[in-house]
């Protein structure tokens, strides 16, 4: 496995696939088609983009001017924070794959993951300059900051939808329907997880209370 890391070819492919993300960003339909069908994307590059996005989000907390984003550091748990970004994305990936695969979706789980990650590039690209610029503007000029903030998120969302359409070879209408279905699947999964964990904790609490009772009576 590690032999591949020694080859120059691996790195060339990695950087080429990373660069391809920019093409996907500007030419979503064409780009996301080629991403899987022409095998121009790699998992390494996809994960890199995801990690970059999360990293930028964390950097933002510290380096955005307090005028636009003030952080209550006492309550911030960085692991929970990262999880709160990555976990919904992973739910989306699984939810999307689970629904589309039942209805002629051509994409595999890995491809859905790759497409979703590639679609997150605008966030990094837009947020870094916004973060730096926020330190040089006043609160009245802050409208630009908030508009760009929204744009970066909407751009990502549109790219994700476009990516799913191309990966699964769906028509526009079918794609939109399955976007809604995937979101519903995400909701159901969250519901089931909540149910599962609350059941588990109740179960544990039951045995703990039995143990406690035994201790009292000894």
């Amino acid at each position: 496995m590690f032999d591949a890391l020694k080859k120059k070819e691996t790195y060339r492919k990695y950087f080429k696939s990373l660069k391809f993300a920019f093409y996907c960003m500007t030419h979503p339909l064409d780009g996301f088609w080629d991403l899987t069908h022409e095998k121009r994307g790699t998992y390494a590059a996809a994960t890199t983009i995801l990690v970059l996005g999360v990293f930028v989000r964390i950097l933002k907390l510290k380096y955005t001017s307090f005028v636009f984003l003030s952080v209550y550091w006492e309550d911030l748990n960085i692991l929970m924070y990262v999880a709160s970004i990555v976990f919904p994305l992973m739910l989306w990936v699984v939810g999307n794959w689970a629904t589309t695969t039942l209805f002629d979706g051509k994409g595999r789980l890995g491809q859905v993951y790759m497409g979703t990650c590639y679609a997150l590039l605008p966030y990094t690209v837009i947020q870094i300059p916004v973060m730096i610029a926020s330190n040089f503007v006043t609160i009245e000029e802050g409208q630009f900051i908030s508009v760009l903030d929204v744009i970066s998120l909407v751009y990502c969302a549109l790219l994700i939808v476009a990516a799913m359409g191309q990966i699964h070879e769906f028509s526009l209408a079918k794609n939109l329907v399955f976007t809604v279905f995937s979101l519903a699947a995400v909701m159901i999964m969250i519901f089931l997880l909540l149910l599962f964990f609350s059941m588990i904790s109740q179960g544990v609490a039951y045995f703990v209370s039995i143990g406690r009772e035994l201790l009292f009576r000894m």
Partner: peptide
């Protein structure tokens, strides 16, 4: 102003400083 998160006054000061 930054210590107490007073964004409005901070912006006033910053505008002049800039």
């Amino acid at each position: 102003f930054e210590v107490k998160y007073d964004a409005v006054n901070y912006s006033k000061a910053f505008q002049q400083y800039r």
